[in-house]
Amino acid sequence: MSSVAVPSGFGRTAALFNSVVGKKIVMAVTGVILFGFVTVHMIGNLQIFLGPDRINAYGKFLQENVELLWPARIILLTSVALHILAAWQLTMLNNFKARPVAYVKKAALVSTYAARTMVWSGPIVGFFIVYHILHFTTMHAYPGVAPDDVYNKVIYGFQRQPAAAIFYMVANILLATHLYHGVWSLFQTLGVNHPRYTPWIKTGSKLFGFVIGMGNCSIPLAVLLKVLPRTL
């Protein structure tokens, strides 16, 4: 009889995650969540250009709504964890093993630089997220004593450590490329591909990656160029 049994019963949910397409779907769905997050996160942070009062009020709003903050954090952390787990497994368990003998010569026909570097941009962005949390959330990696308000915390954080600002910018450029491939890719993985719409989706994801990258880079850049003045 058949060598392939259709997964059945209780194992089905697990089977979805055991299958390579299922894992990609998990990455796509978590990708949507993370994509939403980076958008909101960027819009929130760009309020720094509207002056200390706005950004401080935004920080205060987030801190005071614990019942919103923690569920959001849990969803995000779970998403990040699943996204990384699926990516790690696909790469290590499937893709790296699928071609044990490398080509002597291999050309890339159409794949984008962004697509080919997903496997590197992902881990670097992941490392950046950890650093970013330690830097501005838990403050373990914050240089010196932090000011009380969010606005000056950001400015001192970058000015005392310009290298951190540069790492932020590099990481965000990688995030931009990751998003460029990731966003159109998640549509494809979830089954959305149509000759009429896919070109728009690809252009949209390019634009989206660019906007997020530029938006996020603008803050450390503005601090380094002293466009944003200290108020303390």
Binding site: V20, K23, N94, K97, V110
Partner: peptide, 12 residues
């Protein structure tokens, strides 16, 4: 089962 890799939408 056949040890093919996963799709990462390169388009190659």
């Amino acid at each position: 089962e056949e040890a093919f890799g996963a799709c990462t939408n390169y388009g190659e």
